[in-house]
Design a protein around this nucleic acid. Sequence first.
DNA 1: CGATTACTTGAACCGCTTCAAGTATCGTGG
DNA 2: CCACGATACTTGAAGCGGTTCAAGTAATCG
Lengths: 239, 239
Amino acid sequence: MPNTLILQLSRRDKIPADERRELLDLFANERVAPTGQELIPEGSRSSFSLLLLDGFAARFKTLSTGARQITGVHVPGDFLDLHGFLLKTLAYGVVALSDCRVMQADHENLRRITRASPHLARLLWMDTLIDASISREWLASMGRRSAEGHLAHLICELFTRLEVVQQTSGYSFRVPLKQADLADILGLSVVHVNRTLQSLRKQGLIIWEGMRVHIENWDGLVKIAEFDPTYLCLRSEPR
Amino acid sequence: MPNTLILQLSRRDKIPADERRELLDLFANERVAPTGQELIPEGSRSSFSLLLLDGFAARFKTLSTGARQITGVHVPGDFLDLHGFLLKTLAYGVVALSDCRVMQADHENLRRITRASPHLARLLWMDTLIDASISREWLASMGRRSAEGHLAHLICELFTRLEVVQQTSGYSFRVPLKQADLADILGLSVVHVNRTLQSLRKQGLIIWEGMRVHIENWDGLVKIAEFDPTYLCLRSEPR
DNA sequence: CGATTACTTGAACCGCTTCAAGTATCGTGG
DNA sequence: CCACGATACTTGAAGCGGTTCAAGTAATCG
């Protein structure tokens, strides 16, 4: 079932059949969470980590004003909280942005297979490093890109990540994000997200209708986003 | 020599003497880099990772406009690019913000000791996870905190991190950051950083003169920063 | 069909940027 | 030892990007 994870990992390194089997055996307790449910509460401790099989989820932090900042978006094949394996206490919550299907990997088992297989340990470590790399790229977006560049960059990133897990068809893909979610991702107000989307539409770069996104002009979008996929580490090499 | 690394790690877990020895043996080729030198060039590949022994360094990305965003600040005892061990190609450069002393750990050796000792592997993995956790907290600052809250939060974080490596005396510490560096960290203009600093000073929260910072009112600073150190994982527990 | 939620639009406002100039500090060569 | 240049910091004023408030429209759903 967690084939999307295998798709992600094998995009970055070769994974022998026995390691695939060990990975797949890791997961149990498949369950479904409806849109809006807190999959992992803020500041919680847990004895397992969740793998997202289906849907979109987001890491978030809520400030005292009630403002919410989303610090990461997860697509199928992503771990939601693999860092919880070692950090123990999570400073952030994870919420389902759409209906989600997840499975859990007990930390006990993670500990067992990472001790037994240094290569699997490195692959999982790498997974958390790519996660971190995305956060850094988001920091650059927040700090130094315009609202338009930032949004364009997000669209480029989501498209690229969804392509890896085969959730695109041509330049079209499903993104179950409301404009309010986008606002919390981009650190903008909903009103401005709306206007920024319109600007991208008027330039003939994208079509965003409901939850379907179509990129009309990839090169143009990449250009105003200054999108360079290096940070997503999509080359397969020994890790 | 790399005692600050041990200070950091043992703040999060117990480290047996033999592991300490193995860690210390990892590092070689101590060298000094003057302020402004690029310790690691943008987009580079490397066969070793650097540990910062002394000074301040920063991860940065430069956009086509020439604007620079700093996505992470390093203090003594921090790895500058431990993620390079597995990611291979680094999307970011690292620059010395002050005169720095560094040592290097060959990836070959990292591979050897992480294979031999699962616990050391987990400690190093954890180190990169804390790094990621800081990035996420920075995202929350960038997106949803005011300039004042953001700067206050940075000061709280730097104080806390420097305390771990015993680089504070009371509420005073040395921070070799120019206002231009602060601007690139906070994603603001130099002018506004200047005004925001003045505002914190006028409220009697901090004294920032040259490279010396003194926190006059910790509780007040924590309050406007909404600083909660959970994300720094400062509790010692089995990892 | 009515209620709720998502999206859209307009207008006033404000936080931060930009531009431009001035001051302070410090190292360096004459 | 001072004059000079370079760099960091500071200040003022105008402008813009994004927010906020408020209202209206469209889509969704029991």
